[in-house]
């Protein structure tokens, strides 16, 4: 009986919208030099970066969290991939990633409301 009343109430008033999924993604803001690779995949089922060693690239992080809380990046193996902040006023969501040598590692976005991990493959030159 209670479920029937809830159903009728939903039908009359409209059901509450499902909360928006919390997400964080990064996307490149620079490209690789000629003959070198840089691919960033941000799909629901795949988050991956493939980059040639020796390449540096800028990334910007976008998330659905508090816009006043800038995200942080965490690198699992800094011997493979290094991270720097961008020295620019107001660039709190932009970073520079440096592919140091061939190997695999992970980069994790730590946003205020969620985290997202990218599998990183640094391919040899």
């Amino acid at each position: 009986m209670r479920q029937l009343l809830l159903l009728l109430a939903c039908a009359a008033l409209g059901c509450p919208a499902a909360p928006a999924p919390k997400r964080a993604v990064l996307y490149p803001i620079t490209s690789a030099p000629p003959a070198r690779r840089l691919e960033v995949v941000s799909k629901d089922d795949q988050h991956a970066i493939t980059v040639s060693s020796g390449v540096a690239f800028g990334v910007s992080v976008s998330d659905s969290c508090d816009p006043l809380s800038p995200p942080a990046l965490e690198i699992a193996d800094p011997n493979v991939l290094r991270e720097h902040r961008l020295g620019r006023h107001g660039a709190k969501r932009e970073f520079v990633l440096v592919a140091v040598r061939a190997g695999k590692t992970r980069v994790t976005i730590r946003a205020e409301c969620t985290t997202q991990t990218y599998e990183v493959t640094v391919v040899p030159q």
């Binding site: 020796g54 540096a56 720097h84 902040r85 520079v96 440096v98």
Partner: peptide, 22 residues
């Protein structure tokens, strides 16, 4: 032989810019 980025770092170790050299 190959390619490497060169980063220009400011006093707080943030990246001011970078370029790739062959």
């Amino acid at each position: 032989a190959g390619l490497s980025a060169v980063l220009f770092l400011g006093p707080d170790k943030t990246v001011i810019d970078f370029l790739h050299l062959w």
